Amino acid sequence: MTKIHFHFDHVGSYLRPQELKEAREQFSEGKISQSDLLAVQDKLVKDLVHHEVENGLQVVSDGEFGRSWWHLDFLWNLTGLESYLQKDSYKFHGAKTRTTNVRINGKIAENPEHPFYRDFQYLKSITPEGVTPKVTIPSPSLLFRDNRSDQALDHYDTWEAYLDGLAQAYHDTILHFYDLGARYVQLDDTTWAFLIQQLSQGSAEEKAQAEKNAKDAVYLINKALENLPEDLTTATHICRGNFQSTYLFEGGYNVVAEYLGQLNYDIFFLEYDDSRSGDFSPLATIWNNRPNVELVLGVITSKKPELEDIDAVIARINEAAQTVPLENLGISTQCGFASTEEGNILTEEDEWKKLQLIKTITDKVWG
């Protein structure tokens, strides 16, 4: 193993405390200043980190408390991108989101004043010694969907030049986080779940486009990760959508496993909390290409408060260990608890019980 494998990890987002929700609303209404909002946010992030460490996590996040969306807040704060309101919302199974989106308005580049840098610096400052603070940002492949790249060729001579420019913006951003002390950066990605659905159910034309997008995503992501410092751990979370306990996509990883195995990540968070995720056979394809990888199985759901049966989860881990070595596996919730500020339909007490369950199982399986 060339990187530390914790076996017990968490995707990143946590339910927003009511105090934070009220402060964000007051800020949007002009009743408090940004410094007032950040003071509330910092206090609650400090409480969160305390609870994360108290529950046995060796990797902590800021819960994404400084953002409304898991992805859009990061993207529209890059140079060359802007937010706008689209006509339709995202169609989750049983729910609709807000209509916010992001689009290109110039050449894309790292923003040295990106607000996520400030949030990470605060997180690092309150993280206890021996614990790793984690950065979570969306994958650049998110720009392939929802009309986000429609204006790309208005600003770049070719599609390849656009991919290279986007990769460079991400590379520079990750290096900036590294310079601030980050040693663990995670890129969250719903694009692969979309491609799974297209490759499995789409028309011939849709399948051809999905294959092109998959190849472009591998090129783009690996270009962004190229020549990063050796002591930086990079991870990805392959997500099927998570909004108020609903989802966007379904389907097993088989049709994209070949592409996932080409991605130069150290850790893969993979959803495996229900039948939407398929079986464990694709793990072998990823591991065969990257034998030092850690595959974190999302066998605990963040969408419902009910606790999983310990013996049943251990049986699933042992099943996965027939495909790849046990030392290459870890477990987590399948996604965060609040991919948007609305959060999933469970309580803060519920989320800590979920993490306590994961710690109990981790101790039983890996000692």
Results as ranks from 00 to 15, higher is better:
residue 13 S to R: 07
residue 73 D to A: 08
residue 165 G to E: 08
residue 326 L to Y: 12
residue 164 D to T: 10
residue 166 L to P: 06
residue 63 G to F: 15
residue 8 F to H: 15
residue 344 N to R: 05
residue 349 E to T: 07
residue 20 L to F: 14
residue 310 I to F: 02
residue 145 R to M: 09
residue 159 W to L: 11
residue 181 G to E: 03
residue 64 E to T: 08
residue 120 F to G: 04
residue 287 W to L: 07
residue 157 D to N: 02
residue 66 G to H: 14
residue 220 L to W: 13
residue 234 T to W: 05
residue 85 L to D: 03
residue 35 S to W: 14
residue 96 K to R: 15
residue 310 I to S: 04
residue 101 N to H: 06
residue 358 I to P: 15
residue 218 V to G: 02
residue 206 E to T: 14
residue 257 A to F: 11
residue 98 R to V: 05
residue 163 L to G: 06
residue 81 L to P: 13
residue 231 D to G: 09
residue 101 N to F: 04
residue 267 I to S: 11
residue 347 T to P: 11
residue 355 L to E: 14
residue 311 D to V: 07
residue 333 T to Q: 12
residue 294 E to W: 02
residue 318 N to H: 11
residue 171 H to K: 10
residue 284 A to G: 07
residue 117 Y to M: 05
residue 91 K to C: 03
residue 267 I to F: 08
residue 85 L to P: 00
residue 277 S to W: 00
residue 81 L to A: 13
residue 274 D to R: 01
residue 82 E to D: 12
residue 298 G to Q: 10
residue 137 I to S: 10
residue 112 P to W: 05
residue 72 L to G: 01
residue 176 H to I: 06
residue 255 V to F: 11
residue 167 A to H: 05
residue 73 D to W: 11
residue 237 H to Y: 01
residue 325 P to D: 13
residue 276 R to G: 00
residue 130 G to F: 01
residue 318 N to D: 14
residue 313 V to S: 13
residue 102 V to M: 06
residue 210 A to T: 10
residue 207 K to H: 07
residue 76 W to I: 05
residue 162 Y to F: 15
residue 323 T to N: 01
residue 38 L to Y: 15
residue 342 E to T: 04
residue 322 Q to N: 05
residue 236 T to H: 01
residue 346 L to G: 07
residue 98 R to K: 09
residue 259 Y to V: 01
residue 301 T to N: 06
residue 55 N to S: 13
residue 219 Y to V: 04
residue 272 Y to C: 02
residue 66 G to Y: 15
residue 75 L to T: 03
residue 270 L to P: 01
residue 112 P to L: 10
residue 33 S to T: 13
residue 185 V to I: 14
residue 248 L to P: 00
residue 21 K to T: 07
residue 137 I to A: 10
residue 44 L to H: 11
residue 162 Y to N: 06
residue 22 E to H: 05
residue 329 L to Q: 06
residue 94 G to R: 05
residue 277 S to V: 00
residue 115 P to N: 08
residue 162 Y to W: 14
residue 211 E to T: 08
residue 253 Y to T: 02
residue 265 Y to S: 02
residue 254 N to V: 04
residue 321 A to V: 04
residue 89 S to R: 04
residue 240 R to D: 00
residue 258 E to P: 05
residue 66 G to W: 15
residue 120 F to C: 07
residue 260 L to Q: 00
residue 331 I to M: 15
residue 176 H to E: 14
residue 311 D to L: 03
residue 239 C to Y: 04
residue 7 H to T: 09
residue 125 S to A: 14
residue 238 I to M: 08
residue 208 A to P: 10
residue 49 V to M: 08
residue 85 L to I: 12
residue 111 N to T: 03
residue 10 H to M: 03
residue 286 I to R: 02
residue 63 G to T: 10
residue 324 V to M: 05
residue 324 V to D: 07
residue 203 S to M: 12
residue 255 V to R: 12
residue 201 Q to L: 09
residue 146 D to R: 03
residue 184 Y to I: 03
residue 340 T to Y: 10
residue 283 L to D: 08
residue 50 H to G: 00
residue 198 Q to M: 12
residue 286 I to M: 06
residue 334 Q to S: 03
residue 92 F to C: 06
residue 5 H to G: 02
residue 36 D to A: 13
residue 228 L to Q: 11
